[in-house]
Amino acid sequence: MTEKATQGRLEISDLSITYRKPRSDEVFTAVEGVSLTIEKGSFVTIVGSSGCGKSTLLLAMAGLIPKASGAIALDGQEVTKPGPDRAMVFQDASLLPWRTVHGNVRFALELQRWKRDDIDERAMRYVRMVGLGAFADYHPHQLSGGMRQRVNIARALCVDPDVLLMDEPFGALDAQTREVMCDELLRIWERDKKTAIFVTHAIDEAIFLGDRVVVMGRNPGHIRDVIEIDLPRPRTNAMLDSPAFVDYRRRLREYIAADLAALQMVEAIV
């Protein structure tokens, strides 16, 4: 691709995010002191038990929630609001139910003011790329959960972002569909290797997809470790049982288990 594909380096430094609880002055710290550099073209997954601030961190990268302190820079530019250099894949329910598959992909192009004359064709190209060519005229309620997530991915990719942000996109899918979707996502990602950041609570998914796995802990949300995944690409399902994979899985499980044990202790004291 052109020069654009060489961009997409995210630099997060000492980032904190706080929420004010509704109808009170109490402030809740969701993420504290997070520093992380994500190289262009790399695939980074973020895991952690629920409530560790992983989704909050992703939303901040998207520019959808404000920072309390610290900085997020994309290719040296401070992130303050959503922009065409980033695109987000949400969980299931974010497709417009009155639009068709094609219409939903087109929606993103319309919002970013793409030229009218090739907008339909471009949307169709991405619908085909995720394997939904035959379903272009279907409405979301006529599709399976996996198919809906394909539409979500097509919608995010068609605007040609530098960074792809994914918030537990396969969280609502059954185990088999999840595996298929992971394979599919990697197949699509390998084509032009955009920077990808993928939040999940599934450990296997995180190892299988990522070049690096960021492990987050809670109270408040922080980074506990960053694990380099030294498995060759393209990744295959056979790797799931390789000694290296099993070892990564064991290490990550220990982190999550420790986090949950700490939580239970806190609850016992309280």
Binding site: L64, P82, P84, S94, L111
Partner: peptide, 22 residues
């Protein structure tokens, strides 16, 4: 649906986009 609004905003929707398209 706030999910739809948030998704539209993430793609850079402006106020009138949110009203007319969502």
């Amino acid at each position: 649906d706030p999910d739809l609004i948030r998704a539209a905003i993430s793609f850079g929707a402006r106020r009138h986009d949110l009203f007319f398209k969502v």
